[in-house]
Amino acid sequence: MNVGLHFYLLEIKKILSYRAEFWLGFIGNVASQFGVAYFLWKAIFLARGLTSLQGFDFGALMLYYLLVPLVERAVNGQELGNVSGEIYEGGLTRYLLYPVSFFRIKYLGQLAQSTVFLVQLFVAMALFMLIFRTPHAIGIFSILKTIPVIFCAGILHFIMTINLEIIAFWADNVWSLTVLNRLITHLLGGGLLPLAFFPDRVQSWLGYLPYSRLVSFPINCLLGHVGNREWLIGLTVTAAWSLGLGLVAAWTWSRGLKTYTGVGI
């Protein structure tokens, strides 16, 4: 069997080996994010006697907030410090000696997580629609359009994280930088609030940044709010950011390798 495929399947097995912890973590995370958003926006809708806010009625807004943690997990995977850990502990030396690409192996690890989380995403969506009998039906065409978007967003997120993690060649700990990246992505990507709630000028500015491609864009695709032209533009922008940041990462990596001693902490 191909080494990459073997590694990918092994990673999936690893993720599913602690099933109770895996499902508890998943349910707890989704329920708490959704629960807080539910009460917050319910209070606002009731206080103002509104039926919709910035084009979202209450049901649509709740579906959006349900999708946020699910899409974020599918795009991000869950491992932080995966690359920096190898640099700090000297594990990178193995990859420099073995005939396998370090980044290929690391990306396959993230892809395995994304695959499992994508399945969770669709299971949760099906349950939501079954329980709430929402009129905001998600069509099969939207789902088909979303899969490549999440796949490309996963690559972009991987490259963004790599750019931060390879600072480990020079800094003594980069964990805080990756957490910081998640915080910024959550706000500017539309995880904390739909981007439609930001002032118009800020919204257009946010559209140029890569963050919205990681959260808001996949969710809007899933909800059927993205036309074919916009979908193509979105994928192109994601690819352009991935390429640009990939070049930065390649340059930094080559500089970092020159300083790498392989000693480990």
């Binding site: 800094a171 003594d172 700990n173 805080s176 910081l180």
Partner: peptide, 9 residues
Amino acid sequence: VDFFFRIFM
């Protein structure tokens, strides 16, 4: 460096 990264975070 880690000390200041954490403050910044």
